[in-house]
Simulated assay, not measured.
Amino acid sequence: MKTANYAHEIIRELRVAIDTISETEAEQLVDAILAANKVFVSGAGRSGLMGKAFVMRMMHMGINAYVVGETVTANFEKEDLLIVGTGSGETKTLIPVVEKAKALGGTVATVTLSPDSTLGKLADLTVTLAGAPKDQVGGEYNTIQPMGSLFEQAMLLFYDAVILRFMEKKGLNSNQMYGKHANLE
């Protein structure tokens, strides 16, 4: 198959996956971001990379947003929000982070394939994305893509859609956001 054909199939899979996102769950996440003093994002591996891109966009909008574990990350407090991206919802390194955020009185959101997982059950709100598990065993979604690629791509598109919804609610546009774009590059 040609590379372009694979890309078209990936786009088809993403359309199907994105169509399954609950508007109610998405709006709850946008509202939680609006209500939070600070927003923290965590995830392992490629899910973590998607989260870093999301934090960058939130920073461009003037949100106090941080990636958990970075040297410049602020302290987590009661009025803060932790967003965890995790396909399985069972990532062992993320469970203690979520438990600590809950113990500190913050709000936790998960973006996951597995709302009934350990992390899904610990969360105050959950956004369920479609995709296939990394091991391709179980689940109801078939994909030509390896491992968790579909979930991670859907997560990045979802995060960008959350940014657009936030911009709409706050009356922001790209020109205003550009003022916070890095200028030492």
Score class of each variant (00 low, 15 high):
71 T>D: 10
72 V>M: 10
72 V>I: 12
73 T>G: 05
73 T>C: 12
73 T>W: 01
74 A>T: 14
75 N>Q: 09
75 N>H: 09
75 N>A: 06
76 F>A: 12
76 F>V: 13
77 E>V: 03
77 E>A: 14
78 K>F: 04
78 K>N: 12
78 K>P: 05
81 L>V: 04
81 L>F: 03
83 I>Y: 11
83 I>T: 00
83 I>F: 00
83 I>Q: 08
83 I>C: 00
85 G>R: 13
85 G>A: 15
85 G>S: 08
86 T>R: 11
86 T>F: 02
86 T>W: 03
86 T>D: 03
89 G>T: 15
90 E>Y: 13
91 T>R: 07
93 T>Q: 14
93 T>A: 13
95 I>Q: 08
95 I>D: 07
95 I>T: 14
96 P>A: 01
98 V>P: 09
99 E>S: 06
99 E>N: 07
99 E>M: 01
102 K>A: 00
103 A>C: 12
104 L>D: 07
106 G>T: 07
106 G>W: 02
106 G>K: 11
108 V>I: 11
108 V>M: 01
109 A>N: 13
110 T>V: 05
110 T>A: 04
111 V>M: 06
112 T>N: 01
112 T>S: 08
113 L>C: 09
113 L>Q: 01
113 L>P: 01
114 S>A: 04
115 P>Y: 04
115 P>W: 00
115 P>E: 01
116 D>Y: 08
118 T>W: 12
118 T>V: 15
119 L>R: 00
119 L>H: 01
119 L>Q: 00
120 G>C: 05
121 K>S: 15
121 K>A: 12
122 L>I: 07
122 L>H: 10
123 A>M: 05
123 A>T: 11
124 D>A: 04
125 L>Y: 13
126 T>F: 03
126 T>I: 00
127 V>M: 10
128 T>H: 14
128 T>Y: 10
132 A>I: 07
133 P>A: 15
133 P>H: 04
134 K>M: 09
134 K>T: 03
136 Q>Y: 11
136 Q>C: 14
136 Q>G: 11
137 V>W: 08
138 G>T: 07
139 G>T: 06
140 E>Q: 11
140 E>Y: 11
141 Y>P: 06
145 Q>N: 13
145 Q>G: 05
146 P>C: 09
147 M>G: 10
147 M>Q: 10
149 S>D: 00
150 L>V: 06
150 L>I: 11
150 L>G: 04
151 F>K: 08
152 E>C: 03
152 E>S: 06
153 Q>T: 13
153 Q>S: 06
154 A>I: 00
154 A>Q: 11
155 M>Y: 07
155 M>I: 08
156 L>I: 05
158 F>P: 14
160 D>R: 08
161 A>P: 13
161 A>H: 07
161 A>W: 12
162 V>F: 09
162 V>H: 11
163 I>W: 15
